[in-house]
Amino acid sequence: MLVLISEDPRVSHRANEAMRIALGVVAGENEVSIVLAGPATHLLDEDTDELVDGDDIAKVRTSLRKLGIPFHVEAASVPTDASWNADAHPVTPIDAGDRRSRDPGVPLHRLLMAGVLHLLKRDASPLAAPVIDAMRRRRKAQ
């Protein structure tokens, strides 16, 4: 399972919540990869006092490190501050090319906590498209 975190932990609690969920799924003995994209790379800032739910972030980060779960981080978004990732959490840099180079024939069924609607298993539900379409039409009509 891939957990893509793109929220900014300096302004939103949702980055920590996504990481907490990832830890929970890892604890369920699932194979999980965590990607920190954009400002979410600040989850590895040394000073967690500047982050929303900073104490929780430090705890979850420590647990993930003990479990040997690395972070895949978007290289272009890594802060230049030398104190970043002071705990030396294992990280694997990726770049936009890595994100684009995925074989389009490989379905993304296991993506969690990114943007809008993501499907984790098997083929997309045939129920989803008409419901969302109707919802958007209703919104436009209002």
Partner: peptide, 29 residues
Amino acid sequence: LVVLTDIINGTDRFLSLNWSGGPDMAPTP
């Protein structure tokens, strides 16, 4: 989260609706 994990593992399909931004911020789904 243990129950959430069980649901993820035990269901045929799992949908995750997460976007927190307003409609102006959201990419077109």
